[in-house]
Design a protein around this nucleic acid. Structure first.
Lengths: 228, 228
DNA sequence: CCGGTGCTTGACACATATGTGACATATACT
DNA sequence: AGTATATGTCACATATGTGTCAAGCACCGG
C-alpha cells in the first residue's frame, strides 16, 4: 500500500510539481486548492502525510494544521508546512502548531522528497522501504550502502542518488532532463551530458565485480534500470 | 503527445473550471465560446475529445454534434454532452445524435474527469494507457519496449514512434503525408518515400520472430496497422 | 500476357547520440 | 595547508539511426 499524501497548495504550478515528484517516488496524492477543500478531503480519507501551504485561501494553513491536531483521528498525522516566509518567528509558530517539519519556498525538490521520507520514517516507519532489492542489487537507504551479489559496492553521493532514483521504478525510461530534475534538483543548472558521465560511473561501479550492465540505454530517450 | 480536448462552453466560469481540471490531469485544451467558434476550431485541428455544451450560442450543441458526425474525419470523435436539462427525452435525443456520454450540470468535477477517462479509454485506449496491446503486440511507453508474443523487439526511435502512432487507431489507414505529419512533425521536410523505408524497417523488426505482417499496405492510400 | 504505376528493399553517405579518458575545480577530512 | 575524493565539462572515438536513391518486384486494368 502506497503512502497517501494530501497536497494543500493553491499555486497550481507548485501543486503540480509536488504531485509529479511524489507520484514518481511511489506516493499516491490528492490536491486541495484551498483550506476548505483540504478539510473536506481530510474528512473523506485520512492521508499518511499532509503538505500544507502556509497561505492557503479560505482557511489559512496554520488554522488547518490546528484543526488537524484537534481531531482525534488526525492528531498524529504528519504535517510538513510550506511557506514563502522565512522569519524565524513564523517558523516557531508553525512548529508550535504541531507541524512536523517546515520547508521554505522556493525549495529544492530533492530536499523536499528527502524530508517527506524522513518524516514518514519517523512517524510511520512501516510505510517507508529502507531497503530496496532489484535483481541482484540491494540499495539500503538507512546505511547508504549498495551491494551486488552480496559484495559491497562503493558509490559516490551522486551515483547513489542516481541509482536510488532509478530503483524507484525499475524498467521505466527516464530522460536526461527528468534525471537532472530528480537527482540533481530542479534549481541547479548542469549540462544534460553530465548525466551520461555519471551513468557511466554508476555502470562501472556496478559492474566492478563482473556482473553485466544493469542500466539500459534507450537511444534518443534516456536510461532505465533493467527491471530484472 | 497529450490528449487534446476541445471545450465548447459559453459560460466562462464553467469553461475555466473544466480547463483547469483537464490541464491538471495532463490534457491539452482549447475553449470555444460558441458553436461557430467550435466548428472553426474543429476544422483547424481535430481534438481527441469534445466537451459540448447543449445550449451553445449561434449553433446549438446538438447541431454541432450532428455536424461532427457528418464529417468523415470527425465521425468517430468522442463527444461528451454537458447540459442543464435533466429531462429523459433530451438525454435520449443527445445520445441519438451521437454523443458518447452525457453529463448534467451541475456536475462533480471528479465524476466528469472519470467520464472523460472512461470515454477516451473506450474509443482511444492508446492515448490513456501507457501500455497498449493490439493482437500479439504490446507497446509500453514507460519502459520504451515492444514485445510480440512475449519476445522483446528492438526498434529505433523512429520505428517506435511510427508503431506508437499506428497503434492509436488500429485499422485506420494513414497516408504518407499524415504519417510524416504525425510521426516526424509538420516542420521537417522529408520525402514521402522515406515513410516506405521506415515502414519496411518496422515490418522487418516486428516479423523478426516469425510472426506475420501486422501492417497492411493500402495501394495508393497508405498503411495501417491490422486491427487484429 | 503486357505495360505502367506503386511498393519494397539493399546499399550507402551522412547525421546524430552515446561512451569515456582527461582535466580543472570544488568539497570534505585530517 | 595538504590530501583524498567528487564533480562537471570537454573532446574525441564509436555506435547507431536516418534519408535518399535505384533496381527489382507486385499488382491492376486492359
Amino acid at each position: 500500500m502506497k503512502p497517501f499524501v494530501l497536497i494543500a497548495e493553491d499555486e497550481k504550478a507548485v501543486a503540480e510539481l509536488l504531485r509529479y515528484n511524489l507520484e514518481r517516488e511511489g506516493y499516491e496524492t490528492a490536491v486541495a486548492p484551498d483550506g476548505d477543500e483540504a478539510m473536506i478531503q481530510l474528512d473523506e480519507r485520512v492521508p499518511d502525510l499532509v503538505l500544507l501551504d502556509w497561505m492557503l485561501p479560505k482557511v489559512p494553513g496554520i488554522e488547518v494544521c490546528r484543526r488537524i491536531r484537534s481531531k482525534p483521528e488526525t492528531a498524529n498525522l504528519p504535517v510538513i508546512m510550506l511557506t514563502a516566509r522565512t522569519e524565524e518567528a513564523d517558523r516557531i509558530r508553525g512548529l508550535d502548531t504541531g507541524a512536523d517539519d517546515y520547508v521554505t519556498k522556493p525549495f529544492s525538490t530533492t530536499e523536499l522528497m528527502a524530508r517527506v521520507r524522513a518524516v514518514l520514517r519517523r512517524i510511520r516507519p512501516a510505510l517507508i522501504e529502507d531497503k530496496v532489492v532489484v535483481g541482484d542489487i540491494v540499495v539500503d537507504r538507512t546505511t547508504h550502502t549498495v551491494t551486488r551479489n552480496g559484495e559491497g559496492i562503493h558509490l559516490g553521493p551522486t551515483e547513489f542518488r542516481l541509482l536510488d532514483y532509478f530503483i524507484q521504478h525499475p524498467g521505466r525510461v527516464f530522460s536526461r532532463e527528468q534525471l537532472l530534475d530528480g537527482v540533481w534538483g530542479s534549481d541547479v543548472y548542469v549540462e544534460a551530458r553530465t548525466v551520461d558521465v555519471h551513468v557511466g560511473r554508476l555502470r562501472k561501479a556496478l559492474m566492478s565485480n563482473g556482473g553485466d550492465d544493469p542500466i539500459r540505454t534507450v537511444r534518443s530517450a534516456g536510461y532505465s534500470l533493467r527491471a530484472n
